[in-house]
Nucleic acid binder design. Structure first.
Lengths: 182, 182
DNA sequence: GTCTATAGGTAGATAGAC
DNA sequence: GTCTATCTACCTATAGAC
C-alpha cells in the first residue's frame, strides 16, 4: 500500500516507462528484487496504482452524491470531488490512470475499463438529473465527455500556489457550464 | 520529414519510451544506426515531432481565423481546426505534443513552450472577441483552459467510424459553450 | 547517406541464502 | 519477506567501411 502510493507519484512525475524497479524499491527502502515477492511484474504495480486511483475517487463521489440533496448540489459534487482527487495532496494515482493507458497490456485493460465505466456512469446519472432540472444543456453524453476532459486537463496548468483553491476552481468551472436561469 | 510523420504515429500508438530507434528505422526502411546521421539523439526526433504538431496547427488556425469574418465564425474555427488537427488523417504529431511532455528534457522545453503559447494566444484573442460580442461567458482565461482540455480529451473517445464527423463534433462542442441569445 | 558491427549501459526478472 | 548476485535481453549511440 505504501508502495502503491509511492509508485503513483513516481509514475506521475517520470512516467511509467522511465521509472525503474530500482526507483520503486528505493522509494520504500527495499531492494528491487524484493518487489517481485509482492508483484509478479512491474506492470502489475501500474495496474494496482490505476485501480486505486479510480476506485477511491468513485467511492468519494458516491458518498458526496448521497449527501447532496438538490440536483445542483450533486452537480457541484462532481466537480469538487474530481478536482480534489486529481489535484489534492495524495492522489497522483488518478493522474496515472489518465496518462499511462498505453503501457497497460491488452490483458489488463478490461478490468480497468469496468472501473472507469462505473465512475462515468455516476457522472451520467447526475448530469441527466441536472439537465432535467434545467441547470445544464441537454446533450449530457457529450457534456460528460467534454467536462471530464476539462477537469483532467487541469493537472497541466493548475498550481496550488496560485490564487485559486481547488474548491474555488471547482466552483468556477461549474459556473461555466450552468445555464442562465430564467 | 517522412520519418517525422512515421515517428509521430509510433510515438502516439506505443508511447515515446516504448518506441525504439529500431522501430523508427523500420518504419522508413533504414537501419537504426542511420537515423543518427539525421538526428543526434532520439529525443531530437521527439522534439521535431512535437514542433511539427503545434506549428502546423497554429498555421492552419491563423489562416482559418483570417478567412472568418464574424466573431462567431472565428470561434467556430477554433473548434474545427483543433479537432481536425487532432483527429484528422495525418496529425498524430499534435497528440504526441499533448501526451509526451515528460519525456522532453528540461533543455528542450522552453522552445516548445514558446510554440504552445503562441497557439494559445490565438485562442485567447478569439475568445475575447467572442465574449465581447456576448457569445460566450466572460471568464475567457478559464474558458480557454477548459475548452482546450475538452478538445484534447476527444482523442480518448472519438472514433471516426461513429455517427459524428469531426466537423459535426466541432459544431456540437461549440453549441455547448454558446450562450442562449436574448 | 546508409550499411554492419558492436560498445557500453541498464532494464526487468530470477535464484538461493538468510 | 528481504537480501545479494546475476542472467538475459535490449536499449541508445558510435565507428568505420562502402
Amino acid at each position: 500500500m505504501e508502495l502503491i502510493r509511492a509508485a503513483a507519484m513516481l509514475f506521475r512525475d517520470q512516467g511509467y516507462e522511465r521509472t525503474t524497479v530500482r526507483d520503486l524499491g528505493n522509494a520504500v527502502g527495499i531492494q528491487s528484487g524484493s518487489l517481485f515477492y509482492h508483484f509478479r511484474t512491474k506492470e502489475e504495480i501500474l495496474v494496482a496504482v490505476m485501480a486505486l486511483g479510480i476506485t477511491s475517487t468513485t467511492e468519494q463521489l458516491k458518498r458526496a452524491i448521497d449527501e447532496a440533496i438538490t440536483p445542483r448540489a450533486k452537480l457541484a459534487a462532481l466537480f469538487r470531488v474530481h478536482l480534489n482527487s486529481l489535484l489534492g495532496d495524495n492522489q497522483a494515482a488518478l493522474e496515472v490512470m489518465l496518462y499511462e493507458w498505453r503501457s497497460v497490456s491488452a490483458a489488463a485493460r478490461p478490468g480497468l475499463i469496468v472501473l472507469r465505466d462505473r465512475y462515468e456512469a455516476l457522472w451520467q446519472q447526475v448530469l441527466d438529473e441536472a439537465a432535467a432540472a434545467g441547470l445544464i444543456k441537454r446533450d449530457t453524453a457529450l457534456l460528460r465527455r467534454t467536462l471530464l476532459g476539462s477537469l483532467h486537463w487541469s493537472v497541466q496548468w493548475y498550481r496550488s500556489e496560485g490564487a485559486l483553491s481547488v474548491d474555488q476552481l471547482a466552483e468556477h468551472m461549474l459556473d461555466l457550464v450552468l445555464l442562465p436561469q430564467t
